[in-house]
Design a protein around this nucleic acid. Structure first.
Lengths: 160, 160
DNA sequence: TTCGCTATGTCAAAGTCCTGACATCCATCA
DNA sequence: TGATGGATGTCAGGACTTTGACATAGCGAA
């Protein structure tokens, strides 16, 4: 029986360190994206759109962990700057599939390169196997917390 | 020469999965803290204060990754509810060391227990060794990104 | 001592994001 | 056919957080 178990010292709490790393990553991304005149949500939108052209506003919102409303203003900003295009009317349903413009692709290339550099700096000193473990473990954590995830699917085994 | 390397597919990008896990954790914490009438920043403040009594506003802010101004309003709210006490005048310098009241300790016990349950759900299926690895790896990531961290200190070796 | 330098607490303003609500469109089923 | 539910885009409104600025208090060097 686990009786009244509480969170231990913050330095040893997974949640605390997870938050710490996420904040540090956000700040570092913000720093390298600022010269490109991009915010983190804007970059996230471009990155996702580059990988999956035709995504709708709602789908982009889910993919970047924000609300539809927030993503909408992001898209409007990117549209005004000519980095993204959306049809004026919906072809099917109400979805407005967004796409990158050539200028958007250029911006994305620069931004994605900068962000990749941040990722590499973050993972400096970690072996490829350990980076893969980190990826798998974090994915498992997210899955375990997703609502209605009563199936604690184990993470892939550690790569030696 | 690393030539124009960009961020790969988001599912395989450490930064993306890190954000995903952090958002899921935040949502899960919010859900279990709501019945206790506590927000995540409020709980974070209580938890830190429980472990390190006498922390000042600025120190609490740094420890919870928010600004002094935000922490100040959090403290004011907790003070009004009688969970935290601060001296009216500063004994040394301008720092106002905060402390938990007995009621604050009670609230913290309940909240910390609930949050610990979330952490355990998040780490379900992960061996203790792997949880420790996650902790060490995330700490190393945060350290690598902290400004002025030119010393890529390697993470502790993986525990078999 | 006196002059910077840093850190703290606090006030005001702006920005960002979310919650709530509504109309529209498609899909499913009775 | 009509009805119900789910999903999308959009419009305010409000809550939360940050940025900017200021006065104050300690600390170290000239």
């Amino acid at each position: 029986m686990t009786q009244q178990e509480t969170v231990g010292p913050v330095e040893n709490a997974v949640g605390y360190v997870l938050k710490e790393a996420a904040v540090a990553l956000r700040a570092a991304m913000d720093a390298v994206l600022r010269p490109l005149q991009l915010t983190v949500p804007q970059y996230s939108c471009l990155e996702l759109l580059g990988q999956r052209p035709g995504l709708s506003n709602a789908e982009l919102a889910r993919g970047t962990f924000v609300t539809r409303q927030s993503m909408n203003v992001v898209l409007q900003g990117l549209e005004e700057r000519g980095l993204v295009t959306r049809p004026a009317t919906a072809a099917r349903g109400r979805e407005l599939p967004a796409e990158l413009t050539p200028a958007g692709r250029d911006q994305l290339l620069a931004a994605s390169t900068a962000v990749r550099a941040v990722e590499k700096r973050m993972c400096a000193g970690l072996s490829p196997a350990r980076q893969q473990d980190l990826l798998d473990t974090l994915a498992a954590c997210a899955r375990n917390l997703s609502p209605g995830a009563d199936t604690p699917v184990p993470a892939p085994p550690r790569t030696p």
